[in-house]
Nucleic acid binder design. Structure first.
Length: 567
RNA sequence: GCGCCCGUAGUUCAAUGGAUAGAACACCAGCCUUCUAAGCUGGUUACGUAGGUUCGAUUCCUACCGGGCGUACCA
């Protein structure tokens, strides 16, 4: 009784080489296949003859006798048919044994990995770009964890930039707006503050003289005293609370949160030291990192007027991360626009002597059909409005479908469905591709969507609830329909799917896998009766259904999506 | 100018260098006295261009065309 991984490793051992074991294009050809072109060339043999020899060898191997039913040479390919008498129980039993923990492995060997994501700016709104960042970071974190790493998810909040001073300037000059904020609920203040920032940039664009006032506010915040400093503390807190409520809604948990305001002082100190050491230097009145000889250009660190640029905080933060935590890798989930910046930052850190692995996990942006998002032009979908729309649509659909449900159940289900939908939209496209976000398309509930997966899960749950308890001794040989074999084989591929997704930092592989699994499950559901089949067959089918349900649940969990039992 | 990413069906996306390039949406035609029709079945349509490497290229390399991003004081 071997699982897929075990069978593959046995094949490699028997053949004594690292042949790529792949899957034939159609299941009628077999379960596994080997292409022998490469090997044939290396040994100077004809691939067709070599395929025949290999097939013969595998057919004779006593080690593979229980796992493999038949091996056929088809032209230059060797196609392998597994023996489902042993394969089926192996797969189902391993899923049944580990349940919610199925898929967990120790490949990470407890190596510490810090992953920084989310990275909101206080006083600004969260938009769908941030949502992609959070969903991606959260899933990678879950993948690190399930792969046996000691993962350390952290967020870094920029509470200190010029955007803060601008917002404060606006509030001071618009008491009405300020009072509106004071009076609103804690949960709403955060995004209302973001709208204030939008207003502020608009107002400042037409007001040249105000720039000086903004600069003064900035200085006052830095000096840590005075009226504006207090206003900063208060409004900063609104944003932070807002972020926390968003994380809670999304089910995202951080082990630590860093703030720019907390690292900036030590950053300035670090910069001074680095200038002395010659890692950084003065140029044209500014302090820069000259990385020309590494082909990485120049990175400005401190402006010629003496004020700090972004890298100051980032350097200090990196130092803090390495000093305070035993980590072997530090991952930054930040959009692709900052690829050069991170190469520069990592090079400086290397020059400072840090040897840990540093990874910039870059993802492409979320754009709208009308073009790039830009908060200045108002061409942006905020997190707040996206969730509101998703919830509303889900509520209507759920109400229509289940008029008999209680209000509470409808609201609860609709909310879960709404979060599933938007998260899945963020995670079904590979990270290096732009997401063209069409809100109407994205909030649909059919096709390649989270709802399809949830619906499939709910259907299978429903069968489980209605089915009588198994009485007979389980006989897996009852699962002989082609649909059953296809479904089972797909279940067996779950471990390698999550391994692959983790290695490539690519959640979309899991999304795709789950969708295809659900297609097979629905296909099965329609073609084969479960509950009404003969008891012995029924009991075996119910086992397959239960295993499928478990994998859907576990896969969704990795995407940060809670499987719904009834929709 | 230089660097990075992307060009696949009307649209949005898939495809470890391998067998007949797959889905979803949209459109058309069917399927509920059977386990949730938010489902299933069937139908139409595609690798930007030109070379090269290879037994074999959507995949690797080069050039070009088209789109996006970055490139010293934004973050």
């Amino acid at each position: 009784m071997e699982t897929l991984d075990q069978i593959k490793s046995q094949l490699s051992q028997t053949l004594k080489n690292d042949l790529d074991i792949s899957y034939p294009p159609s299941p009628e050809l077999g379960d596994l296949s080997l292409a022998l072109f490469g090997l044939a060339k290396a040994s100077g043999k004809n691939p067709i003859e070599l395929a025949q020899e290999t097939a013969e060898k595998l057919n004779k191997s006593p080690k593979l006798k229980t796992a493999i039913k038949e091996v056929r040479a088809v032209g230059p390919y060797v196609n392998i048919f597994l023996d489902y008498n042993s394969f089926t129980p192996a797969v189902i039993k391993s899923i049944k044994k580990d349940q919610d923990d199925y898929g967990r492995n120790q490949s990470g060997k407890k190596a510490g990995v810090m992953i920084e994501y989310s990275n909101g700016n206080t006083h600004k709104e969260l938009h769908i770009g941030h949502l992609r960042n959070i969903c991606l970071g959260d899933t990678i974190n879950r993948l690190l964890d399930i792969s046996g790493h000691r993962s350390l998810p952290v967020s870094y909040i920029n509470d200190f930039g010029i955007h803060v001073a601008k917002t404060l300037w606006y509030l001071k000059n618009n008491q009405k707006e300020y009072q509106k904020l004071i009076k609103s609920t804690p949960k709403n203040r955060g995004y209302l503050l973001g709208s204030a920032y939008k207003e502020a940039t608009a107002a400042l664009a037409e007001n040249e003289t105000a720039k000086e006032a903004v600069g003064k506010i900035m200085q006052e915040i830095e000096s840590q005293k005075g009226e504006n400093y207090q206003l900063w503390q208060k409004t900063r807190d609104w944003s932070i609370k807002y972020f926390q409520s968003v994380y809670q809604d999304l089910g995202v948990k951080f082990k630590k949160t860093f703030y720019e305001s907390e690292v900036i002082t030590s950053g300035l100190k670090t910069v001074k030291e680095l200038v002395t050491k010659g890692v950084l230097k003065k140029s044209e009145g500014a302090i820069i990192a000259d990385l020309e000889k590494y082909n990485l250009g120049v990175l400005p660190i401190i402006r010629s007027d003496g004020t700090a640029l972004y890298p100051v905080a980032d350097l200090a933060l990196a130092v803090k991360k390495f000093r305070e935590n035993k980590i072997q890798e530090s991952i930054y989930v930040v959009d692709v626009r900052q690829s050069l910046y991170f190469k520069q930052l990592f090079k400086i850190l290397q020059l400072m002597g840090y040897e840990q692995k540093m990874t910039h996990l870059a993802y492409d942006f979320v754009t709208l059909p009308s073009g790039m998002m830009s908060s200045r032009s108002g061409n942006v979908i905020t997190y707040h409005e996206l969730i509101a729309q998703a919830k509303e649509l889900a509520l209507t659909a759920t109400k229509d479908k289940h008029p008999d449900w209680s209000q509470k159940k409808i609201t609860q289900t609709a909310s879960e469905l709404a979060f599933s939908t938007i998260k899945f939209e963020m995670l079904k496209v590979s990270a290096q591709k732009t997401i063209t976000f069409d809100i109407k398309e994205a909030l649909k509930f059919d096709g390649y969507t989270a709802t399809y997966l949830q619906y499939t899960h709910a259907r299978l749950m429903s069968i489980g609830r209605k089915a009588p308890r198994a009485k007979s001794r389980l006989d897996y040989s009852q699962l002989s329909e082609p649909q059953e074999k296809h479904l089972l084989f797909r279940l067996a591929q779950y471990p390698e799917t999550i391994r692959h997704a983790k290695d490539n930092y690519d959640p979309s592989e899991i999304s795709k896998y789950l969708f295809e699994l659900c297609q097979l499950a629905n296909d099965y559901y329609h073609a084969i009766p479960i509950i009404k089949s003969a008891p012995k067959t029924r009991d075996a089918r119910l086992e397959l259904i239960a295993a499928t349900r478990q994998i859907i649940k576990n896969g969704l969990e990795l995407l940060g999506i809670k499987a719904i039992n009834e929709i």
